[in-house]
């Protein structure tokens, strides 16, 4: 049975000051799955995620999230989406709880369960210390809690496990699996950590020089590259770069 598509882009592109940064982004993310977005530095991963969130306007092509146009229905999409793009930004002088309270107020979702969100990322009992005193890992956990606290249907996460120790990475992976498999929600994440994407994602997309060159599954990668995802990634990105 074919699954509902939560994210669908067709030849999506972005030009900055005459330079084409995204040439052809054609991808689809099914409901209830984790989509891992891979690419080298500067390949365009973050730009694609920003396009989907309406932080950038597409120059050409089409993008749909929940069946809505990313350019025209930005606010409707954002209401149902949680995001983490680049280094997380907070109200530094406020505590984790206060940050989430403000987030919920801005999202127009006052009934969000802050304690539950903090518990999920193992930050419960953090107290009222300001976010400015948090370590990189704590900030990353809080950013993930913020992305989830308003109960979104889709998470768009740029390098979500940055700064986390191996235990933290594992906890967040389990959290993501719970989010998709038990709650039926969807995650689109980008990462540099190949092994992490391999273990987390149900489907993998590779972007090379602004073009999504391949969408596949970890199983297919394993069958083609028994030595591991690293060989696949290098072969794909170098092959894609030459195309």
């Amino acid at each position: 049975m074919e699954r509902e598509l939560i994210v669908k882009t067709e030849k999506l592109g972005k030009v900055f000051d005459g330079k084409t940064v995204i040439r052809d982004c054609t991808m689809s993310v099914e409901k209830g799955t984790i989509y891992g977005f891979l690419g080298r530095n500067g390949a365009g991963k973050t730009t694609v995620l920003k396009l989907l969130l309406g932080l950038l306007q597409p120059t050409f092509g089409e993008g749909r999230v929940f069946g809505m146009d990313i350019a025209a229905d930005r606010r409707k999409i954002l209401r149902q989406t949680g995001s983490l793009i680049e280094a997380p930004v907070f109200y530094e002088h406020l505590s984790a709880k206060e940050n989430l309270q403000f987030h919920l107020a801005y999202m127009g979702y006052p009934d969000g369960d802050i304690e539950k969100a903090l518990r999920k990322v193992k930050l419960s009992g953090i107290g009222m210390q300001p976010v400015s005193t948090y370590s990189l890992g704590m900030r990353q956990r809080l950013a993930i809690a913020r992305a989830m606290v308003h109960d979104p249907q889709l998470l768009i996460l740029d390098e979500p496990v940055n700064g986390l120790d191996p235990v933290g990475v594992r906890e967040i992976r389990e959290l993501f699996h719970c989010f998709t498999k038990e709650e039926g929600k969807t995650i689109l994440l980008s990462s540099h950590i190949l092994s992490e994407v391999e273990q987390t994602a149900d489907r993998i997309g590779v972007i090379v020089n602004g073009t999504v060159v391949e969408q596949t599954t970890p199983e297919i990668i394993h069958s083609r590259y028994p030595s591991g995802i690293e060989d696949y990634f290098i072969a794909t990105t170098e092959g894609g770069a030459n195309t």
Binding site: G54, L55, M107, G108
Partner: peptide
């Protein structure tokens, strides 16, 4: 980045 991620005009 944070400000523009809210579903507010």
């Amino acid at each position: 980045l944070l400000l523009f991620s809210y579903p507010i005009s």
